Amino acid sequence: MNAGLLALPIAAVLSLPAAQPVSAARPVAGGGSASAGWHAVVAAPVASAPVGPACKTLPQSGRGSVTELGRLRVDTAIAHSPDLSTLNQAIQAAGLAHKLNTAKNITVFAPTDEAFKKLGKRKLDKLLADRNALTQVLTYHVVQGRKTPKDLKKGEFPTVEGAKITTKGSGDKLKVDKAKVACGDIRTRNANLYVIDAVLTPKR
């Protein structure tokens, strides 16, 4: 995996202002929200240091740094992250950039370029050309609420797509379905971002 995306001075993270809390939505089992829609309003937790083995490789300043990402809305932050270029391409192809950037307090699980390569070129090209299938896959990577590593230690959460994801583990061993978190709990202006090593598939 290209280390370009992933570097993060903890001091910079701790210096970020905490998001102002808003009215909490009714919780459901596993810490999820009663609504899986884009605009459900939930409380935003206080920022904490990101976790994961690749966090140390994030740039300390400038493009792709935690300070810069904290000022950006989530799709713009993804577009500024070198290891997420395929995800950015997929979001544009599905027409989801505006929805991601205007959603309130969400969590996005972001597959790296290497994660998309694991699909194989033929399957990836087919997915990128099918807007409906692509939208289904991408919205499975989004849940309502800013989820912290503590929330994800052992949980089940409804996604915007409708199916549920499962999470477990902590620290460098945090997993989302079968994907490993390379660096997570990166706070953008409207979302918590978790970079993962596999593309998630909706379970039916």
Score class of each variant (00 low, 15 high):
Pro21Gln: 05
Pro21His: 00
Val22Ser: 13
Val22Cys: 06
Ser23His: 07
Ser23Ile: 12
Pro27Val: 06
Val28Cys: 06
Val28Ser: 08
Ala29Lys: 00
Ala29Thr: 08
Gly30Gln: 00
Gly31His: 11
Ser33Arg: 04
Ser35Lys: 10
Ala40Trp: 08
Ala40Ser: 11
Val41His: 14
Val42Pro: 06
Val42Tyr: 05
Ala43Ser: 15
Ala43Trp: 08
Ala44Trp: 09
Pro45Phe: 12
Pro45Met: 08
Ser48Phe: 05
Pro50Glu: 10
Pro50Arg: 02
Val51Phe: 14
Val51Ile: 09
Gly52Asp: 10
Gly52Met: 10
Ala54Tyr: 15
Ala54Ile: 06
Thr57Asn: 14
Thr57Phe: 15
Gln60Val: 10
Gln60Phe: 14
Ser61Gly: 07
Gly64Ile: 13
Gly64Gln: 08
Gly64Tyr: 12
Ser65Phe: 05
Glu68Phe: 04
Glu68Asp: 05
Leu69Asp: 05
Val74Asp: 00
Val74Gln: 01
Asp75Trp: 11
Ala77Val: 03
Ile78Asn: 03
Ile78Pro: 06
Ile78Tyr: 01
Ile78Leu: 13
Ala79Pro: 03
Ala79Trp: 00
Ala79Asn: 08
His80Gln: 04
Asp83Ala: 10
Leu84Gly: 01
Leu87Thr: 06
Gln89Ser: 13
Ala90Asp: 08
Gln92Asp: 09
Gln92Leu: 14
Gln92Arg: 15
Ala93Asp: 09
Gly95Pro: 01
Leu96Tyr: 00
His98Lys: 13
Asn101Trp: 00
Thr102Val: 08
Lys104Met: 05
Asn105Cys: 06
Ile106Ser: 11
Ile106Trp: 11
Ala110Asn: 07
Pro111Ala: 00
